[in-house]
Design a binder for these strands. Structure first.
Length: 433
RNA sequence: GCCGGGGUAGCUCAGCCGGGUAGAGCGCCGGGCUGUUAACCCGGUGGUCGGGGGUUCGAAUCCCCUCCCCGGCGCCA
C-alpha cells in the first residue's frame, strides 16, 4: 500500500509548483512575525515549509503560531526552489493541520549522556539515532540475505535455558514455574543439535550477560548472530565469517552512504573490508607482535584491551587471530592436532581499535575428550547429558561462530559507544525506559 | 569488583581551594520583526545546591556516611 501523502524524500525531488501533502513532526521552527519556517521531519528526511499569515485561514494561522518542536502536523503546499532553504527546496504551505501539539521538547542537542539515556524514547527521534538504526537494519538485512543465498537455515533456539554455556557468574536468573531458569548467553549448544538435521544453521537471538562491565563495548542484552555448520573445519568457518562480514559492510556503504556521512564516518576506512580474504595470524604471532611493540605480555595471557587495540593498528581491514591457548578458551573448542596446548578457536577483530566482533571455533566432537574438558572446567557433566548425546549419535566434525551485531554496527558507523547501536540499551543495570 | 572524574534552575555549566543573602547562557512565557539556518531585540519566569549526619554564629563550599551518573581496567560478542 502506497501512502496517501508524500514522503519528504520524494517532495525534495519534485519540480517547482508541484503540490505535496506532507505528514511529519516539527523538527525545528523559526517564528518571524507574519511568516514562519517549519522544518518537517519524516522517516525519509527533513524539508522546510514556509507558512505565511496571508496564505492561510485565520484559524490555521492561529494554530500554526502555537506550533512547537515535535508537534505532529500535516502540511499541504507547493514545492519551490530557494537557495535560502536547507537542501535548496521548500514547501510553501497552503494549509496546515495540527495532529498533536508538543510541550517544550526536553532535548535539543546539548544534553549529557545520562539525560539522553533517561529520555531515550524521545532521543530516538534524533537524526543521529535514526541514521544509526537505518545502518543497523541494512547490515542485518544484508547478512540475512547472504545467509539465505548461501544455503543456511535460520532457526529459533530457546531464550530460557536450564544451564550455562560459559561461566555461570554472568547469568540472569528468572523464575520458571517452580524452577529456576536463566536467560540465554548463547544459542550455540542448541544450534549444534540442529546441525544433525539441517547441517548449516544460524540464528539471531538476544543474548544476556549479567556482568557489571564498565566498558564502551559491552551490553547486558545484545543481538547475537550465531552459525553452526556440520562438516565445517575452522578454516571453512573463517571463510564464511569473512564473506558474511565483507558483504554486509559493502552493502551498508552502498545503501547507507548518506547516513554514514551524517555520522561523520570516514568511509575510505571501511572500503578495505570489502575484499576478502582477511589476514590471519596465530595467537603465537600476536604475542610476538605485542612483545616487539613493548607490551609486557607472555604466552598464555589473555589479550587485554590495550593489546587488542595495538594489534588492530597493524591492519587496515578485519583480521583473524587463531589457535589460542586452551586454558583461556571455552571447553567445547577442539584441540589443535599435535598441539594439545592450543585450540582451534578464532576471533575476528575489526580495525581502528574496534576489536573483536566474532568469536568462533571448531568444536570438540569426541565425547571422551569433551567430558574431560567439562570436568577440567569444574562443570557437572550431568547438566550436559543432552549435549553429550550429540557426540553419541553420529558425531560429526563441525564449527561455528557468534557475531555481536552491535559490535559490527559500532565499527561500521564509527561511533564510540555500543549503547547507541541499539534503541533501548541494557547495560550497567540500566532498565528505564 | 577496582581506579579516576562528576551530581548546583527545564538543559549546559560557573561558584567550592581561602565558609558570609544562589549566578550566567540557553530554554520557557509575553511583546516586536516577511528569509530564519543553534535567528535577533525588549520584558518576564526560574533552585529541597543528589540524600543523611557532623563542625560552625553561619555550609553549595569543610569533615563523615550513602545513593546515582560518566570514563578506564578485568571479561567477552
Amino acid at each position: 500500500m502506497a501512502p496517501k501523502w508524500d514522503l519528504v524524500a520524494d517532495a525534495l525531488k519534485k519540480v517547482d509548483g508541484e503540490e505535496v501533502l506532507l505528514r511529519g513532526w516539527v523538527h525545528w521552527i523559526h517564528k518571524l512575525g507574519k511568516k514562519m519556517f517549519i522544518r518537517v521531519r519524516d522517516h525519509t528526511g527533513i524539508i522546510q515549509a514556509v507558512a505565511e499569515k496571508a496564505s492561510l485561514s485565520n484559524e490555521e494561522w492561529k494554530a500554526v503560531k502555537k506550533l512547537t518542536r515535535e508537534s505532529s502536523i500535516e502540511i499541504r503546499g507547493r514545492v519551490r526552489s530557494d537557495p535560502r532553504a536547507p537542501g535548496g527546496k521548500e514547501v510553501v504551505a497552503t494549509s496546515v493541520k495540527v495532529f498533536g501539539y508538543s510541550p517544550p521538547f526536553p532535548i535539543w542537542g546539548r544534553e549529557d549522556v545520562d539525560f539522553l539515556l533517561d529520555h531515550r524514547h524521545l532521543w530516538l527521534r534524533s537524526r543521529r539515532m535514526t541514521a544509526i538504526m537505518k545502518v543497523r537494519e541494512t547490515i542485518l538485512s544484508a547478512m540475512r540475505e547472504w545467509l539465505k543465498r548461501e544455503g543456511w537455515w535460520e532457526v529459533h533456539p530457546p531464550i530460557l535455558t536450564a544451564s550455562a554455556v560459559e561461566g555461570g557468574a554472568t547469568l540472569f536468573e528468572v523464575k520458571y514455574f517452580d524452577k529456576k531458569a536463566y536467560l540465554s548467553q548463547s544459542a550455540q549448544l542448541y544450534l549444534e543439535a540442529l546441525i544433525f538435521s539441517l547441517e548449516k544453521v544460524w540464528s539471531l537471538t538476544p543474548s544476556f550477560r549479567a556482568e557489571k562491565s564498565r566498558t564502551r563495548r559491552h551490553l547486558a542484552e545484545y543481538w547475537h548472530l550465531e552459525l553452526e555448520g556440520a562438516w565445517y573445519s575452522m578454516e571453512d568457518m573463517m571463510e564464511v565469517a569473512e564473506e558474511l562480514v565483507a558483504y554486509a559492510v559493502r552493502r551498508a556503504v552502498e545503501e547507507r552512504r548518506e547516513e554514514l556521512e551524517f555520522l561523520g564516518r570516514d568511509i575510505s576506512k571501511l572500503e578495505p573490508a570489502f575484499e576478502t580474504p582477511y589476514p590471519r595470524i596465530t595467537y603465537d604471532e600476536a604475542i610476538e607482535i605485542l612483545k616487539r611493540k613493548g607490551f609486557p605480555i607472555s604466552w598464555g595471557d589473555n589479550l587485554g584491551a590495550d593489546e587488542e587495540r595495538a594489534l588492530t593498528e597493524e591492519f587496515e581491514k578485519p583480521f583473524f587471530i587463531t589457535h589460542f591457548p586452551k586454558k583461556i578458551k571455552a571447553f567445547y573448542m577442539k584441540e589443535a592436532p599435535g598441539r594439545p596446548e592450543v585450540v582451534l578457536g578464532f576471533d575476528l577483530l575489526a580495525p581502528e581499535g574496534y576489536g573483536e566482533i566474532i568469536g568462533g571455533s571448531e568444536r570438540e566432537e569426541n565425547i571422551d575428550r569433551l567430558l574431560e574438558r567439562i570436568r577440567e572446567e569444574g562443570y557437572d557433566p550431568a547438566n550436559y547429558e543432552w549435549y553429550l548425546d550429540l557426540r553419541r549419535y553420529g558425531s560429526v566434525p563441525h564449527s561455528g561462530f557468534g557475531l555481536g551485531l552491535e559490535r559490527v554496527v559500532m565499527w561500521v558507523t564509527g561511533i564510540d559507544h555500543i549503547r547507541d547501536t541499539i534503541p533501548f540499551p541494557r547495560f550497567r543495570g540500566r532498565i528505564y525506559p
